[in-house]
Design a binder for these strands. Sequence first.
DNA 1: GTCTATAATTAGATAGAC
DNA 2: GTCTATCTAATTATAGAC
Lengths: 186, 186
Amino acid sequence: MSTPERLIESTRELLWERGYVGTSPKAIQEHAGAGQGSMYHHFKGKPDLALAAIRRTAEEMRATAEGVLSSPGSPYERIEAYLRRERDVLRGCPVGRLTMDPDVIASDELRAPVDETIDWLRERLAGIVEEGKEQGQFAPTLDAEEIAATILATVQGGYVLARASGSPAAFDTGVRGLLALLSPLR
Amino acid sequence: MSTPERLIESTRELLWERGYVGTSPKAIQEHAGAGQGSMYHHFKGKPDLALAAIRRTAEEMRATAEGVLSSPGSPYERIEAYLRRERDVLRGCPVGRLTMDPDVIASDELRAPVDETIDWLRERLAGIVEEGKEQGQFAPTLDAEEIAATILATVQGGYVLARASGSPAAFDTGVRGLLALLSPLR
DNA sequence: GTCTATAATTAGATAGAC
DNA sequence: GTCTATCTAATTATAGAC
C-alpha cells in the first residue's frame, strides 16, 4: 500500500476507535509507519487527512447499506436484513460516533460527509417503508420519514446501549423490539 | 459555591461538551476559576474529578427521568412524556455521549455510573411497558425488555441524527415514528 | 487551601537537508 | 518523497513556598 493510502487507512481506524479529538498526528504516523515529514508532504494537516478518512468511511458505509437494502425480499425483510446485518457493535458506528466529536461538529467540512451519509440512509429507508405501505405490509397511517428516522435512531442508539453495558446483547434487544413493532404479522 | 463544587460543575459541563478525552485539567481549572494546586489538592487527578462529575450527572439524569416517568397517566402517556420531555437535543445526552469516549469505556470505574444509569432506565421503562401490557394498552405479544431497549435506543440515536444534521428536528421525527408504532390506537 | 515553579510528554506544525 | 531538527503551546502532573 502507498504511504498516503496507509495514512488514510490508519486515520480511519484511529478515528473509529478514539474519535477526532483523541487522535493525534503522531499516533497516525506511528500506526501508518510513516514519518512526520511524509505525512505533511501528502496532507495539509490533521483536518485534511481526517477529511479524506471520513469521506472514505462514509462512502464505504453507504455501499454496505445499499448492498443490504437492495437485496431481494419484501420491504419488511430488507429492513430486517439491515437491522440484523453483522456489525462490530462494541466498536460503535464509525460514522455516527463522529457526531459526538466537538471538533467534527464545529467544522462544516468535516461534518458534511457525516450529515450526507445519514441523510441518504434515512431517505433510502423512507423509500422502502413507503413501498411497504403501498404493498399493505405497513399501516397506511405510518409516516415513512418518521419510521425511517426511528429505524436509524434505534441502530445508532443501540450502539450506545451496547457500549454502556460492554456487551452487544443490548443492541440486539433493541432491534428485536423495533422489529416486533414493525412486524406486519401483529 | 465552594472550590470543589465549582471544579465538579465545570468538569460536568466540559465533559458534556467535549467528552473526557477532549477535556484537559487546565480547561477545567480555567472554567472553575481555580488554580492548579487547588485542583490537585481536592482531587487526585483528572480521572478522580471526572468520576465525581460523571456520578453526579448520572444521578441527576436518573432523578429527571424518574420525575417524568412517575407522573400520573397511563403507561403510554408516561412513555410519551419521557420521549417528548424538553431536552437540549443538540448538546447530546450527557450520559450517553460518554459511551463514545475511549478512555471512559476503558475504565471500569468511569463506565460504571454510565452503565448503571442506562440499565436502571431500561428496567424502569420495561416495568411501565409491562404495566401497559397488563392494562391492554400494549399488545401481549410484545416483550417489555425489548420495547424498553428500543425506546432508549431511539432517544440515544435521536441525538446522533440531530447532531449530524445540526438540527433538533431529526430527534423529534424519530420520536414521532416510535410513538406511532407504540400507539394503542393503531 | 491556594499559589507558583518546574518538568516530562505530547500536539500540531514548519524548515530544510537528503 | 522521506527524513531529522526545531518550535510553540498544551497536557498532566509533582514539589514546595505561602
